[in-house]
Nucleic acid binder design. Structure first.
Lengths: 142, 142
DNA sequence: CTATATAATTGTATAGTACAACTAATTTAC
DNA sequence: GTAAATTAGTTGTACTATACAATTATATAG
């Protein structure tokens, strides 16, 4: 393998994270930011989950998720459903307004990505999605 | 264009940023973190630059770069060279130890990326680098 | 039953960032 | 050639996202 390929990936990855965080720090639709978005995404995909599970899935400390959850609850985006099996725990359940704003935010992001890749071929977009996913999986597993 | 491709990119991008920030927050080689790395990278590629130029290139506020520069100076990684043409300004110049630690950090990152993509084809790695670069360019321009 | 483990919260600390106010120097307009 | 506007950099302040440690309440294992 040629080293310059790795160097390119390495550099562009650093730049990407820098740019994306720069965008998303300004880019608040409604009351949502990127971390809140990811948390709501989990709920929207997997249904109600507890803090522990969310923390595992998102690779975050439970304390971080606990605070995010509290903040989302305060905004009326989720509410806590007691877990009758384990009374220490509860499930975070998306509210209607949570679902709404999540979808709005998601759409805004999609629009943004559409613009960013509007001169790409379908093949390129597909490849990009595929490789990002593959890379993410690698990070998780290695 | 199919929307699900965009959805995939959109989601994986959010996950990527989440995971990469999670890694790099723990991942300190020497005294360097990701933002410091990017700043040093600029200097290493373009030679001595001022705070303003760095801020523009990195899409950061000058105050942020000013602090990063101060912190790097304190660590002995850069020093200030007065700009005799504009006496408000100066250039940040990499020191030897700055160059050394930069290279060490870079190598550690490269090793990490090597592991993460060790089961990829060369074609995939190349494509990934290419698309990341293309995407970064789009963010900057659109 | 007691000891240990676990889910969640809260206290504290840090990094990374932006914006606003400020200083010193430069450039522009008359 | 000076006054006004602009610019480079710094510093004060604030906020978000995060982790780790200590704590509380509950659950599970011996």
């Amino acid at each position: 393998m040629k080293n310059f390929i790795l160097e390119k990936i390495e550099l562009e990855m650093a730049v990407l994270v820098r740019r994306v965080t720069s965008i998303t720090s300004k880019n608040k639709i409604g009351n949502l930011d990127r971390s809140a978005y990811l948390l709501l995404h989990q709920l929207s995909v997997h249904g109600p989950l507890g803090v522990k599970t969310l923390a595992d899935n998102l690779q975050l400390d439970t304390s971080t998720v606990s605070r995010q959850a509290a903040s989302l609850e305060k905004k009326g985006y989720v509410y806590k459903v007691p877990d009758h099996v384990d009374r220490r725990a509860y499930f975070l359940q998306l509210t209607e307004s949570g679902t709404e704003d999540f979808n709005e935010y998601k759409q805004a992001r999609l629009d943004r990505f559409k613009v960013l890749t509007d001169d790409w071929t379908d093949e390129e977009r597909q490849q990009f999605g595929h490789l990002l996913k593959k890379f993410n999986k690698a990070i998780l597993e290695k």
